[in-house]
């Protein structure tokens, strides 16, 4: 949400639309989730309600604390251990969708972070005893996961290079669904 609010204040339904557009609708959001999240962000001082147009709908804008929080998020590699959804894929999709993020730097930081996990796993594999086959299988599963992620990052980087210089698509406009009009 913070990423999408970075360039200008937006309505909740806009945020939902843009999130789905950026992540290819892989993780559909319902509008309730969007407003719950906005309320929580407002409580934490990361967004505030901006001037509404007098029609009852509230626009939200990002605060300075919110910008700091957002910068931290983009700068922090995702730990392999705890990934509720694929936060990394979401992070890259949003890094591309919003202006001003150095996407290749995000890719590079993630690559080195994942490489470090892969080194640690390889060390564990090396030190495991010959007979510990079930443990070795588990380590291998994690090694394959880390390896696949690095290959995917390489692939993303190559795709980014091919796309560099192509114009950013014009911002999408969204029709306000009738049942959301009154929500604030």
């Amino acid at each position: 949400m913070l990423a999408l609010l970075q360039d200008e204040p937006k309505y909740g339904y806009q945020l939902r639309g843009e999130f789905e557009a950026a992540t290819g609708a892989t993780w559909p959001l319902n509008i309730g989730q969007v407003y719950t999240t906005l309320t929580r962000l407002e409580r934490d001082g990361l967004v505030r309600a901006a001037s509404s147009e007098g029609d009852g709908r509230s626009m939200y804008e990002i605060t300075d604390a919110g910008r700091t929080e957002l910068a931290n998020w983009f700068q922090t590699p995702v730990a392999r251990e705890s990934r509720p959804r694929d936060e990394l894929a979401i992070k890259l999709a949003l890094a591309l969708a919003v202006p001003g993020v150095d996407v290749s730097a995000v890719v590079q930081r993630q690559r080195m972070s994942t490489m470090q996990s892969l080194q640690e796993l390889t060390r564990q594999k090396r030190n495991s005893a010959e007979g510990e086959i079930s443990w070795q299988l588990v380590i291998e599963s994690m090694i394959f996961g880390a390896e696949a992620e690095i290959r995917w990052l390489d692939h993303c980087e190559a795709m980014l290079l091919r796309h560099r210089g192509k114009p950013r698509p014009a911002p999408q406009t969204y029709d306000v669904p009738a049942d959301q009009e009154a929500r604030s």
Binding site: R111, M112, M115, Q119, L121, T122, R126, I150
Partner: peptide, 13 residues
């Protein structure tokens, strides 16, 4: 190959 690089003490890019 990342899997092979991971055997190293250090990986530089």
């Amino acid at each position: 190959d990342a899997r092979h690089a991971a055997w190293a003490d250090r990986v530089v890019y």
